[in-house]
C-alpha cells in the first residue's frame, strides 16, 4: 500500500508544482514507483514542468467521470521509468472533481504505487480540499514572507480538520518545505528568517530550497529540477528533503550559509 502525499500551500506561486515534480523525480530515482497527480483542474502546469505536455490524452477528470481507464490516463516519464504523471484537465473546472471519484482514483493509485504525490491547487476551495482529503503526509510549501506563512498556517488548520485522517481522529503527518529561500535577503531582513517561520508554523522542517535560476531553467526545458541538473543547489536540497521524507535524520543546512560550506555545519534537528 503506497503513501499519499499532498503538496499544498494555500498561496499560489510558492513552488507547489516545482516541488511536487522535483520530489516525485527524486523518489523515483531510487527505483520506487511514484505517481504525481495534478489536482489543479483548469490551470494545469505539472505536465509542462515534467515535460509531458505533448503526450496528454486523457486526464484526471476523464477518469473520474468514467470516460477513460486509469491506465490510459497515466503517462510514464521518458527519463525515469518508475515515474508517472496523472495530468489534470485544462478545459474543465474543479467542480468536475467529485469526492467519490477522487476517493476511487486515490485508492487505485495507492494499490499500484509506492508514493502518490498530489499537487494541490492554490486556495482553500474544492480542488485544494479534495487534494488533501486522502493524504497520509502533507508537505506545506512556504516562502519566507508573511503572507505565505499565514496562508500556510490556514492550510495546516484545514489539514487538522478537513482530511479523512483528521475526521477519524488521526493526524496527518505535516512537514514544512521552505522554498525560494534567499540567504542574502534574509540576512538583510527583507525576508523572514528560518527560525521565525518555524516558530510561527510549529511543524517539522523537511528542507530549505534556495532561490535559484536552476529551477526556472529546469521548468523551461520541461524537467523536474532533480532530473535536469542533479548537481545544482536546489536539486541537492530536494534530494535531502526526500531522504528526510523517508525517515532519515539529516541535519538541515541553510543554503548560502558561507560557514556552512566548509566545516561548520549547522546542526538543526529536522523534527
Amino acid at each position: 500500500m503506497g503513501k499519499v502525499i499532498v503538496v499544498t500551500s494555500g498561496k499560489g506561486g510558492v513552488g507547489k508544482t516545482t516541488s511536487s515534480a522535483a520530489l516525485g523525480a527524486a523518489l523515483a530515482q531510487n527505483g520506487e514507483k511514484v505517481v504525481v497527480v495534478d489536482f489543479d483542474v483548469g490551470l494545469r502546469n505539472l505536465d509542462l514542468v515534467m515535460g509531458a505536455e505533448r503526450r496528454v490524452v486523457y486526464d484526471l477528470v476523464n477518469v473520474i467521470q468514467g470516460e477513460a481507464k486509469l491506465t490510459q490516463a497515466l503517462i510514464r516519464d521518458k527519463r525515469v521509468e518508475t515515474l508517472y504523471l496523472l495530468p489534470a484537465s485544462q478545459t474543465r473546472d474543479k467542480d468536475n472533481l467529485t469526492p467519490e471519484g477522487v476517493e476511487k482514483v486515490i485508492a487505485a493509485l495507492k494499490n499500484a504505487f509506492d508514493w502518490v504525490i498530489c499537487d494541490s491547487p492554490a486556495g482553500i476551495e474544492r480542488g485544494a480540499t479534495l487534494a488533501m482529503r486522502h493524504a497520509d503526509i502533507a508537505i506545506v510549501v512556504t516562502n519566507p514572507e508573511v503572507s505565505s506563512v499565514r496562508d500556510s498556517d490556514r492550510i495546516i488548520g484545514l489539514l487538522d480538520s478537513k482530511t479523512l485522517k483528521a475526521e477519524n481522529g488521526e493526524r496527518v503527518e505535516k512537514h514544512l518545505l521552505l522554498t525560494r529561500y534567499d540567504a542574502v535577503r534574509a540576512e538583510r531582513g527583507d525576508m523572514l528568517k528560518v527560525d521565525d517561520v518555524l516558530e510561527i508554523l510549529s511543524i517539522p522542517l523537511l528542507g530549505i530550497i534556495p532561490e535559484s535560476m536552476d529551477v526556472l531553467r529546469a521548468s523551461n526545458v520541461g524537467a523536474p529540477v532533480t532530473l535536469a541538473d542533479t548537481r545544482s543547489a536546489p536539486a541537492l536540497a530536494y534530494f535531502e528533503a526526500t531522504r528526510r521524507l523517508k525517515g532519515e535524520n539529516l541535519p538541515i543546512t541553510i543554503p548560502g550559509d558561507k560557514r556552512g560550506f566548509f566545516g561548520k555545519i549547522f546542526g538543526r534537528k529536522a523534527a
Partner: peptide, 27 residues
Amino acid sequence: SRPVRSGQSIFFPEGDVTIIGSVASGA
C-alpha cells in the same frame, strides 16, 4: 491544547479559554 491556526475560531461564551500553543495571525 494545540495551536489555533489562521482562519480558525474558538468561540466559548460560557467561560474562560486556555490555549496551550499559539494563536496565529488571522485566528
